[in-house]
Design a protein around this nucleic acid. Structure first.
Lengths: 336, 336
DNA sequence: CAGTCTAGTTGAATCGTCTTAATCCGCGAC
DNA sequence: GTCGCGGATTAAGACGATTCAACTAGACTG
């Protein structure tokens, strides 16, 4: 296993200078056809592969974008990644997917690594809304775009109107006649969760005689949803909510399973509305109503903003793009 | 936004040479305490961040490992990633997670990128067992470790005995009295799928009077499992299988949902056994029996083999590690 | 035939970090 | 007072690709 051949060896073998090989690689049309052929041959016999590190060093910036998500196992985020990657692909850049698992320490570690790699920029759904590290990063020259969370001006951001999402779910449940509603989500330090709850609360207050219970969880996964469901199923019928609004679909799925186990019928005994409208939601045992977020578009737009910021540099003005969510009504919350 | 400060500016400001700063960074103990302090101050006031590209260029190899999986949305693979990452973390290396989506073109693109980045090595669950590209990659100096697939000597590999897994599922279903069994999985070009089917087939043949139907799918996701389930549910009762063995849990989950929709009870009308034992399996509406694979261990071991190969270089002998799967029996296949 | 183009090619400098051999300096031993 | 020793520091190359000013050799113009 010898060392990988460099442009130099390619040049030598083709009988030209390194400059010409570089031209061949980057501006082939200015190289004479015969020379071009010789270089091509040399490259394939040697099995030459460009050294990205060297290009990067010379260029001063890499062709990689970091994407830090809260949970790779959540289809919502894989869809976001998909969207980001599709645009990246068109611009010949690479996406580095990092999983913070809602853990600030892990998140910090990933940010360090990405900064050391001098990535073009970072797309992130941060654990903490107001982490000063993000601003510091930007100040030191790495553009940061917030995903699924509105920024307050220091960054670009792409988000969905979570309060509206909460209101949509609230209106729907109240209209279908529910008077005791549970909210399941958390941690409540996360802006998205706070906003979804706020939207719901606003609707409930306007309606007057509706009771809202809040059940906080510390991670939004299936397991936690199931646990919350079990807790709620055990409540005496008189005080048990008749509907649940889960802050994401993973929670809702777990919650749904708990209902099945507890023998409560969905939607007759318990209506459920989730959030994100992941593919699983429509395909659940009882198809889940859910507040739909345009995940892929979110990712794609975030990448767009980043590319804008990178291109414009000094004269760039941060933008906050906000999408509207839709409520998709399915069996899990249809009128009994 | 000025350019990121380099070691040179740090040195200047601290009144030392770049060599000393480099020493501070890599072998702090040989630097005098007072100097150390001055450099530390300089670093923090300038906000210096190491340039990984330059280190990499100098060192000739990067501190990144590529991990290419078939489907990031499949919890099995996120568990594998978790395992790989945990070990990587201990060795101060970074994992770059790439999603091929069972698409050879995407896979190829990722491999190109990773090779250009001169990654330390690549852990991959390839689409095609026998892609010559993998051997070429190794020949050119990038170690490749196969994950969840046994290699034939050209690489290290970490896998699980899929034939045994198939036999375990087969024995279990036959013992519980089933005589018509469906196998759902695909594409059949994938070695894992082939082996799981082979194990099942062997058991069925030994038993004698058991019928096995094969239902091939082209991607192993929830949607496809659901479709297969719908197809099978429509069969007349006399010819409809009474049990299904799905080549992964995503398929099984989809299949389970289709049964619910079709009004078939699980396990009374249809027993189901999945594969991978992802967290979802235990938490499904009807808890799923599943052939358990040690996903995290798989990832961790793959990374271990890679590090071994990188360290040993010339004198390295490829190893094939094979784990044993376990059958976890839950409600979905318990005796009616 | 001198002069002007132009297409094609070259060589050297550069990016930021690490390493190696060389240098410096102060102190104790003789 | 000199020598040597060792701890601390430095200066000078790599590493591989890119770029840009400079150069060559023909072709063409007037």
């Amino acid at each position: 296993m010898m060392a990988a051949p460099s442009i130099k060896e390619v040049a030598q073998r083709a009988g030209v200078s390194v400059g010409t090989v570089s031209n061949f690689l980057n501006r082939p049309w200015i190289v004479a056809p015969t020379t071009r052929q010789r270089i091509q041959d040399s490259i394939s016999t040697l099995g030459f592969v460009r050294n990205e590190a060297a290009r990067h060093l010379r260029a001063g910036h890499s062709r990689t974008v970091g994407l830090v998500v809260l949970d790779v196992a959540n289809p919502f985020f894989t869809d976001v990644a998909e969207g980001a990657e599709s645009l990246a692909y068109e611009h010949d850049t690479v996406v580095m997917l990092c999983n913070s698992k809602t853990d600030p320490v892990r998140e910090g570690h990933h940010l360090d690594q990405l900064e050391q790699q001098r990535v073009m920029g970072i797309l992130i759904t941060p654990c903490d809304s107001a982490d000063p590290r993000l601003l510091a990063l930007t100040a030191r020259g790495t553009p940061v775009v917030l995903v699924d969370r509105a920024a307050d001006g220091g960054h670009c951001s792409v988000s969905v109107d979570d309060k509206l999402g909460g209101r949509l779910a609230g209106n729907h449940l109240i209209e279908t006649g529910h008077q005791r509603i549970a909210f399941i989500g958390g941690p409540l330090t996360m802006q998205q969760v706070k906003d979804r709850l706020a939207g719901m609360t606003a609707t409930v207050e306007k309606a007057g005689d509706v009771e809202l219970q809040t059940h906080e969880v510390d991670v939004m996964g299936v397991v936690e949803g199931r646990a919350a469901g079990e807790r709620i199923a055990q409540l005496p019928k008189r005080s048990r909510p008749t509907a649940a609004f889960c802050a994401n679909d993973l929670l809702a799925l777990g919650f749904l399973q708990a209902m099945a186990v507890a023998g409560l019928r969905v939607p007759q005994d318990m209506a459920i509305v989730g959030y994100d409208d992941i593919d699983f939601a429509a395909a659940a045992a009882v198809p889940l109503s859910s507040v739909r977020q345009p995940a892929e578009l979110l990712g794609r737009t975030a990448m767009e903003l980043l590319q804008e910021e990178v291109a414009a540099a000094e004269l760039h003005r941060h933008r906050q793009v906000i999408f509207q969510p839709d409520l998709v009504i399915r069996e899990s919350s249809s009128r009994p």
